[in-house]
Structures are given as structure tokens and as C-alpha cells.
Amino acid sequence: MRTGETRWAYIFLIPWIVGLVLFQAGPMIASAVLSFTDYDLIGSSEFVGVENYATMAADPRLARAIGNTLLYTVVHVPLACLLALGLALLLNRITGRAAGVFRTIFYLPSMTPYVAVGVLFLFLLNGQAGVLNEALAIVGIEGPQWTTDPGWMLAGVVIMSLWNLGASTIVLFAALRNVPRELTEAAMIDGAGAWQRFRHVTLPLISAALFFVVVVDTIAALQMFDQVYTMYFGTSQAQQTSGDAALFYVVYLFQQGFQFLHMGYASALAWLLFAVIAVITFIQVKVGNRLVHYEDPAA
């Protein structure tokens, strides 16, 4: 009976076990091995030791891609999380049907395929006649060439990214809803002002959700691909006009692996990305453990 149950458990797990070997563990090992080879898909692979990693250290385009990606992440994540928090706090101030309608509106951009988002913002951010610069002109500011000036293209990508706040807003709004009213009301009776109530009652109680949003958003930002690839890569014209001003890490990895067929180098790039994401997430978790307030289960 007991052994039969074990056998059946493993039967249900077959898809996972096969997939783990075939599409996770196997490729991971293969990718690690490939990163020490020179392989272009046509010839045979050649062991080159740490050459790929040495090349990475001296690759100016890679340096550019890393710089762009980190700069974007550092600017995008705080802005996106603060704006999402602001929207969630506003939603929490009103109640009932209206909050649901607004929440839906904020999520709608997240249902727009990233390729379409990229296309849309090529038009909206157009330097000559785009809507953003027309709006800026009304208040007397001459807007930059967001989609063609290398100095402003990353800023344009950040602006585009802030259209996609829906999921973060929903998570934070759900967390705010779970803050017990009695606590904020008790603080109010004790004479705490709005900021104090937020800082000492609400914020600790939603800090776990906020932390989650920051970590997930950071990991996603480091892997940005679809929108920028749509806007600035894929054709020789696009690449000529935009150069590497919007070269992101995964875009570069994709180019190396599937345009130049440098499969070994692309694998090495993938492992560096993995390492960077792991280190950043580790630091965030360490810092988070100090800042995040988890409800004491013993209390």
C-alpha cells in the first residue's frame, strides 16, 4: 500500500522529473561547459578554457550593455515602486466600486504585448511631434529627442517602463487592504499624524509586499529585452541610427548567441547575468531582512 503510493507519487511527478533533466539541469550543465568553448553551430566546438571570460573583461560593447542595464535598473526600480506605492495608497483611500475600476485601468497597460508597447512609445516619444514633447512645449520646455539622441534614449525607456505599474500596484493595494483598520485608528486616537501613521503603522505592515515588489521588479529590469529590441534593434537601419545607446544586457546576449552564433560566448554571458542577479538578489534579501517587518508568529 505504502510503496504503491510512492510509485504513484513518482508517476505524477514524471513530467517534472523529465523536464528537470532535459530542460533545466541538462541545459545548465551544457551551458556551463559551452561557456568554456568556442562554438558557432556549424563547426565542432573547441575547448578554449577561460578565454570567453577573459574576452568579456575587455569587451567594450559588453561594458556598455552592463552600464546601460544597471543605470536603467537603478533609475527604473525606485521610480516604479514609489509610483506604484503612491497609486496603491490612493486606491486605499477610496472604497468600493471606484477602487476596482481604477485598479483595472492601471492594469490595462500590462495587457499590452511588449512589442506593441515599444511601437507605441516610438510614436509617443518622437522628438519632433510626439505627444510627450508637445505636452512639454505647453509648459515652455523644449523636449529632447527621446528616441534618437543617444544621451536621452535610456531616459525614454524609463518613461516607457513607468506605464507598466499595474501588477505592482495590485500587489501593494492588496497588502494595504490587509492592514487592520483598528491599528491605524488607534494610532490616530493616540495623536499620530498622517505621516507618522504611515511610517510606523502602515509601512511596517506592508514592508514584506513592498520588498517582494522591489525584488521582482529588479530581476525583471535586469532582463529587459522585448521593448528595446522592438524599438532599436533587429534591422540595420535601426541599429545604425541608435547605435548602442539602448544596448541592454539580454539584447547583447541574444545578438552574440543568435545573430553572431557565438554560442560559447553567449553562454558565458548568461552565467555572468545569473551571477549578477544572484548577488543583487542576495544583497536585497540581506538588506530586506533588516528592514522588512514580518509578523511575529509567537505574538
Partner: peptide
């Protein structure tokens, strides 16, 4: 644990070998 572990793995790491498969 293997299920949770693969959630941490960026898709980029398996991109090239998966293509080769």
C-alpha cells in the same frame, strides 16, 4: 526544493542549450 530552485534560474542561462536541443 528543485521546483523552487528553478524559479530563481534566469531563462537566459538555458537559452543556448535549449536551442541546441
Amino acid at each position: 526544493a528543485s521546483v523552487l530552485g528553478t524559479m530563481m534560474l534566469p531563462a537566459a542561462v538555458t537559452l543556448v542549450p535549449t536551442y541546441l536541443i
